[in-house]
Design a protein around this nucleic acid. Structure first.
Lengths: 200, 200
DNA sequence: AGCGGATATGACAAGGGTGTCATAAAAAAC
DNA sequence: GTTTTTTATGACACCCTTGTCATATCCGCT
């Protein structure tokens, strides 16, 4: 949690600092991010930073919190998913929304991606917390299986991990320069394969 | 390539340096590895290192070369895979060999794993070189498709990427503490799902 | 105007990293 | 034994990082 002083700052300055932090964390993994660079970009003296935040971890958690808020706001605009829709329809229909999110918040998206490349204890902890707070995917698969849509011997949690892993790989391709159209095509193909692979 | 001086070194010292380098690269990604730590572990003065190697990149490439040699030696012991065997049988039957390799060369394996967490240009280049030199998996899938074992509309290169990505994820689980038996079970299930997903 | 708390600031300490270089020592050649 | 070549070595210069702290400045209140 940032210190009180930070929230008492004039709006403009606070935004400047936030922006610089986001850019730093989108350019470097948490472990490689530098407060020196960040304060320079924000145009504040180094000492001030420690007046606003306890340390780098504190800043990171604050940024993650803001990203979470924004994500919730955007996703809620897409309305609650059809309660009866299965995993595949949901995954497919959510694709545009996911891409819209990624392309309208490229920096936020990059921060999320870079988390997967960081093996520090701190980031592991953060990722675990985020994962535990988003069990939608897993529940949806379990529901589909209960309905008999998915073969009973399939481990749905494994499928969820599979999907998330593959998504991460595609995300990497995306940052490697593969164009959006191609990625969308690949996601479709992957879903198709998994679909064929687990359906009853 | 190390400098001539390095190869003229007494066997014992050379091995000591190599061992320290392997341990350093298995403990830290290339970008985070420190020559300071390495020379300390090897018990040689800092200046000597630069007498043997041009820089960290030079050392890394040398280690990778040695690992490659060792891998080739071990894999060739398992004999050439049946030329008629398809992707799934091969992948399944190769599982023990892969695990044996990983468990008998834990440090080498860790180095390979850590490469995937490094996004420096240098490591990207190294990974690309390694990937391009091992097209077995891709060719095998194409052959299966030509035989009509795999549906014609499937993009086999995508399947190869899929498999490699998933393997990487499981590797991560492995280092996260998931026991060998569980991983093997998961690999089997994943192969099963992909199999069902792409077979004709 | 004067006081006091909040804020701003850059120097500082202490640690890390890399690569170079002059010199010392050892080895080899003569 | 002297000269030449090879190797060994740690100090050095320069870069970076984080977190602290004494001091300066600002701002609101009396």
């Amino acid at each position: 949690m940032p210190k009180e002083t930070f929230f008492r700052l004039p709006e403009e300055k606070r935004r400047r600092i936030y922006q610089a932090a986001v850019e730093e964390f989108a350019a470097y993994r948490f472990s490689d991010a530098s407060i020196n660079r960040m304060v320079k970009a924000a145009g504040i003296p180094r000492g001030s930073f420690y007046q606003y935040f306890k340390n780098k971890e504190d800043l990171y958690l604050y940024v993650m919190g803001e990203i979470g808020k924004e994500k919730l706001k955007v996703l809620s605009r897409y309305g609650p998913a059809d309660d009866q829709a299965g995993f595949f329809e949901t995954a497919k229909s959510a694709l545009p929304a996911v891409f819209d999110w990624a392309e309208s918040h490229p920096l936020y998206n990059r921060i999320g991606f870079l988390m997967a490349l960081d093996d520090s204890d701190f980031i592991r902890m953060v990722m675990k917390k985020i994962n535990d707070s988003q069990p939608f995917l897993r529940q949806m698969l379990k529901k589909d299986q209960a309905k008999g849509l998915i073969r009973p011997e399939i481990d749905t949690d494994l499928v969820a991990d599979m999907y998330l892993n593959l998504a991460l790989g595609l995300c990497r391709d995306y940052y490697g320069g593969t164009p959006r159209e191609e990625i969308i095509g690949k996601v479709g193909s992957l879903l198709e394969i998994i679909c064929h692979g687990i359906l009853a």
